[in-house]
Structure formats: C-alpha cells, structure tokens
Design a protein around this nucleic acid. Structure first.
Lengths: 295, 295
DNA sequence: TGAGCGTTCTCGCAGAGTGAGAACGCCGGG
DNA sequence: CCCGGCGTTCTCACTCTGCGAGAACGCTCA
C-alpha cells in the first residue's frame, strides 16, 4: 500500500492577465504579470521551489533559472537554510531541501486528518473494485482530494493527487459534493469557479450540470464519463455525517474501455459499501472540525 | 536547531562596539539574540510555522503569538496564500496549511530517495525483530534518519523521526557511520559536533568514543545501551556500496529490559540479514548520487 | 443598537533589502 | 607553477520596499 508520492509540477493556473504577449524587446521593465505581494517573500519561495523542482541546485543555477542576481540568491538561500527549509551540502556545493518541509507536510496531513479506519476502507475499495480509489472532503469552500490508494496496475488519474481541488464540475466526487450543497452555496461556488471545458463531453453549461446534479442527488451515485480525462471514467458516492449532511465522498477511476455493464454494477456496490463504512465512522462521534462548509 | 558554525562565536552577546553611547533612546528592547538574516523572510516563515503548530489559526492568533502587528501578519499571510503555502478558509475565518507543502515534502523524500526495495527490507526487519526499525544515510556531511518503520507495540524513539541528524555519538547508527568515515573526516565531524551528554552512560570523551568505534569497525555491529534515551537500547549494522564503503545503516531500537541475551543474538542476525539485502541493492547499479560524503 | 471581530486600505517614513563589484580560497588544467 | 573559473562572502551607497498606526467596512452576535 503506498501513501502519496508522485506528483510533479502542475502548470500554474495562468490567470487571464491582460497583455499576454510580452514583446521580446524591453529588457528594462517589461512589468511581469504578477500582482504586487511582498516581493522578498515571493523571491524566497521561488528559490525554494526552484531547488525542489530540480532536486537540489547550486546557487548559480538558481540565479540563472530565476534571473535573480547572485548575491540576492545567496542571501535568501541562507535565510532558508537558517530556518531549516534548505540544507547546504557544503561538500557537494549544492543546496537541497531541508527537514522542516517534512514536518510541515506531516502537519498538513494532520490538519486534513483522514482517520486510519477511513484509509483502510479506501484501501479495500481499491482492492475490491480493482481501480484507483479516492477520498475527497470539503475544506473550507473547496472540495479536495484527501487520500488516494492506487497501484501500478490501477494508477490514479495523473492530476488527482492529494490536494487536488479544481474541476469540481468535471469529476465524479466533485459532482457528489456539489449535489450536497445548498442551492445558494452551489450558486456561489459556481460564480467563482468556471465550468472549464476539459474534454469533448465536459458539461460547461450550468443548466446541464444542474440537471445532472439533481439526478445525482436522487440516485446517490455520480458517474463522470470522459468529462475530465479522455478515455477515463470516474464514479463516486457521498459520505454523510450524523446529521445526514454530505461531508465527503469515496470515488474510483478506471479506463472507460474496461467498464462492462456488469463491472459498473459491481463498482457501484463497492462504492456504496465503502461509503456506508466510512459514514458509520463519521456518524459515531469523532466529527472533529465543523464540517458544515460554510463557503 | 543547529549548533554549528563559528558565526555565533564571533559575535559576543552584547557587542561592546565602539560608539557605545546610544543617543539616549532605546529604553525598551535591548535587541533580541537573533542574528541579522533577512527579516521579512524570517517573519514569514515564523508565521507559516505558527499556523502549522496550532493546526490552523486566525490572523489575530498569529499576531498575538508572535507579537507582529496585525497589518503585517495579514500581508505576509496573503503572500503565503498566494503561493499556495497556506489556504484561507474564508468560511471559518482561519488560515491553514496549503497544498504546496505536500509537494515540497514529497520532493524532499524523493531527494533522499530510499528505494522501495529498501523500504520493504526495513519493514521486514521491523516484523522479524519485533522492534522499531530504521534506515540512516549520509547526506552531505550529516548522518540522517531516512526511513522508519514502527508500530503501536514497537514505537520509534520519539526523537528519531525522518530527518533526525543529531547526537551521532550516542546512537547506534551514528556510531556505524562514524566508524565508516576516514579518520580525518571523523575528526572534522567531531570538531563541529559536540559529544553532548544525554544520559548517564553517554560517551562524552573522544577517547572513549574512538575506542568503541574501533571495536565497531571490526565487529561490524554497533550497540548503544541507554546512551541516548534512558531505558532504551539500539543496535545497527552498516550498509555498503559496490566499492565497500559504508553508505548507510540499518538499525533497531527496543526497551533494554526486553533484550535477553538470546534476543540480542537474534537481533544481530536480523540486522546482518537486512544489511546484506540492502547492500545488495546498492551494489547493483543504482548508486545514484555520489555518496562519497566529502564533508 | 452597538460592541467586537475579521479584513482591507491608506500613507508617510525609515530603514531594510538590493545588487554591482571586489575579494578570498579552492580546484583542475595548461 | 600559474592561471582561470567557480563557490562563497563582504562591502557599500542608493532606493525602493516593507512597515505599522490608524481608519474604514461588513459581518455576527448579544
């Protein structure tokens, strides 16, 4: 059973900034797209990430990659080393990631807080249904992937790593969560999140989406057939707390080609079983943070 | 928490610089101990860690905990949110950790890079010997815990988490690694790292330590009996690469009381077995980064 | 209705961060 | 042996950035 590795760089969601075309000229001040923010902090974090991406780097590499002058890079590198976000491998003349990042990662997982019983249940879902298996929860106003179990034979959908929280309209667990919101919450949510087209069959009109959500609400199961990634299908069932509110969702993904009608029925059954088990956990006490997802 | 370099030595706590006459000002703060560094960055990271420690926090909590004025805290919080190191749960008026921290944690683990075959071997060591099991490697000039397998019945020693790299003189795997260094490397290492007393039996004199290291080098196994944590004993065996150099170490920890002579023999056997298996992996190709530990 | 909190803005000042440049030690190659 | 290149640290004067008191706005609760 693997926890979570993989995950590489995802394209930074390019904001629709005006002036997308930088005229190649103007070496002086082409005014980068970025909003103000605290410049020093942004530079520092950029350096940290540069070191992370290339699995360690020399100061010069960072300087060239980011276009920051060398003295600045050294200064900020040292600040990061001092706080244990980086280590300086003096022998190898390299900077690599520091151990605080592990501790922070652990803290993050603790904040999301998926109990072991739920983890094993998702593991069972993976084994029984022979698919990648997911657990998603509300976090604040977002819907986020909180746990994944997959295997070489049944790998996760590449973007669906821990922390994924986009494309709610185009994922099975996203539909479950949208269907679980009050209509005002849903409207507000969709006012902020566009119905981006991802494949030929992605539902990009609210009308269509609402119609499906109504159906999801009654049937209790959401399917998503190649609306997110071509050739792949997902399915999900909601998880409810003691008050009957949807607080999360168990889900699977599999190649569409492998899904005979019979297999679909089996999967639905496994999803409902898993949902029941997980819901049972959340019904019995232990509902830690207020999951009422105020939006 | 590092104790290393000389920079601390150069600056006496209260520097009696020329111009001692401060213009009558400064009745309040006599300037805290901290060395310069990039102030903004330090503040920002302090905020990040404050949020991590308390599992999410409001801006005001952070402000009070760290003594930074509110507008500053908000500004830096936003910088962190913008870079995905924090999320702002607007519904709950809280800031919590962001998903980039997971990605950075994963990158760190990838940089340390313990292959799965080694992981399973440490798992087996845990099961067979019925103890917490560890794998440690050189990283730059340091010796760091790279992987741990434990269980409720056989928990790890509390400080021995991933990333632990102190007290080399008082841990079994540390002794293995010290024994594996050239004498110049060892001397240099010990010039920088004090032989801190941790328990009544910690070896704090180089003499004593060197004597034991010589014995470790010949026997191939290091024991550490309550020199690190009272009541707990550790043992370790080295892992060698194709060139015969020590590049890591497998280790276990257990309560001293549970270690009959027979059990000690069993544990030594299991450690040697594990070491052989792991060494085999590092012998066959795959010796990625130059582990020659230049110091 | 008002107090308290979360959150964002404004704005003038001070000082922090900046970055060209030089310096130092170390290495490997000519 | 000396030179050139690299990693690393320091200096220093200038400027622009981050600072933080304070006020403002909206919300929730009593």
């Amino acid at each position: 059973m693997r926890i979570d590795d993989a995950s590489t760089l995802t394209r930074p969601s390019a904001d629709p900034a005006p002036v997308p075309a930088q005229p190649a000229s103007a070496p002086p001040a082409p005014a980068p797209p970025r909003e103000p923010g605290v410049v020093t902090v942004e530079k520092t974090l950029a350096i940290l990430e540069a070191v992370a991406e290339r699995g360690g780097a020399t100061a010069r590499e960072v300087s060239e990659a980011l276009g920051f002058p060398l003295p600045t890079v050294y200064r900020l590198l040292q600040a990061l080393v001092q706080s244990d976000y980086l280590v300086h491998l003096t022998g190898q003349h390299r900077f690599e990631l520091g151990y605080k990042l592990d501790r922070l990662g652990v803290s993050l997982h603790r904040q999301i807080g998926i109990p072991t019983s739920v983890r094993t249940e998702i593991g069972r879902l993976h084994t029984l249904s022979q698919t990648a298996a997911y657990f998603a929860v509300y976090r604040g106003a977002d819907v986020v992937v909180a746990y994944v179990v997959d295997s070489p034979d049944h790998p996760r959908l590449t973007p669906l790593n821990f922390g994924f929280h986009e494309a709610t309209h185009a994922t099975a667990f996203g539909k479950i969560m949208l269907a679980g919101m009050s209509s005002e919450q849903r409207d507000q949510y969709l006012d902020v999140h566009e119905l981006t087209r991802l494949t030929a069959t992605t539902k990009t009109r609210r009308q269509d989406l609402y119609a499906e959500l109504a159906q999801v609400a009654t049937s209790g199961v959401a399917w998503e057939i190649e609306e997110f990634v071509p050739g792949m299908t997902c399915a999900a069932v909601g998880v409810r707390n003691g008050a009957g509110m949807i607080i999360g969702s168990v889900a699977i993904s599999a190649p569409s080609a492998e899904l005979s009608e019979r297999r679909q029925r089996d999967i639905e059954r496994h999803l409902r079983d898993a949902s029941n088990q997980v819901s049972r956990y959340y019904r019995s006490g232990a509902l830690r943070r207020a999951n009422t997802a105020t939006l």
